[in-house]
Amino acid sequence: MDKFTTLTGVAAPLEIDNVDTDMIIPKQYLKTIKRTGLGAGLFSEMRYADDGSPNPDFVLNKPAYSKARILVAGDNFGCGSSREHAPWALLDFGIRCVISTDFADIFYNNCFKNGILPIKVSPEDLEKLMDDARRGANATLTVDLLAQEIKGPDGGTVRFEIDAFRKHCLIEGLDDIGLTMVEAGAIKSFESNAASARPWN
Results as ranks from 00 to 15, higher is better:
1 M>L: 11
49 A>L: 14
130 M>S: 07
169 C>D: 07
162 I>S: 10
84 E>T: 13
199 P>W: 05
52 G>N: 11
46 M>N: 01
3 K>L: 08
114 N>Q: 15
123 P>Q: 09
175 D>T: 15
56 P>R: 01
10 V>G: 10
54 P>Y: 02
32 T>D: 08
109 N>L: 12
112 F>G: 01
42 L>A: 01
177 I>Q: 03
90 L>K: 10
73 A>D: 02
120 K>M: 00
8 T>C: 03
153 P>M: 07
105 D>N: 14
13 P>T: 00
15 E>M: 15
125 D>I: 01
164 A>C: 07
132 D>Q: 14
131 D>G: 03
195 A>G: 05
18 N>V: 08
192 S>N: 13
118 P>E: 08
91 L>C: 00
59 V>H: 04
146 L>F: 07
201 N>Y: 14
96 R>K: 12
72 V>K: 03
99 I>F: 03
99 I>H: 01
90 L>E: 02
128 K>W: 09
30 L>I: 00
147 A>R: 04
34 K>Y: 15
197 A>L: 03
67 K>S: 14
27 K>C: 06
106 I>N: 10
48 Y>T: 15
73 A>M: 02
75 D>K: 00
147 A>Y: 06
195 A>N: 11
16 I>F: 07
1 M>I: 15
197 A>G: 07
20 D>Q: 14
1 M>S: 09
141 L>A: 11
44 S>V: 12
10 V>I: 15
37 G>D: 11
30 L>H: 11
53 S>Y: 09
140 T>G: 03
92 D>F: 04
95 I>R: 00
23 M>N: 06
50 D>W: 08
106 I>K: 05
101 T>L: 09
171 I>D: 12
183 E>Q: 14
122 S>C: 12
110 N>I: 14
133 A>S: 04
197 A>K: 05
175 D>W: 07
77 F>L: 06
50 D>Q: 13
196 S>K: 01
60 L>G: 01
170 L>H: 06
43 F>M: 10
22 D>N: 13
26 P>V: 11
144 D>F: 11
152 G>M: 04
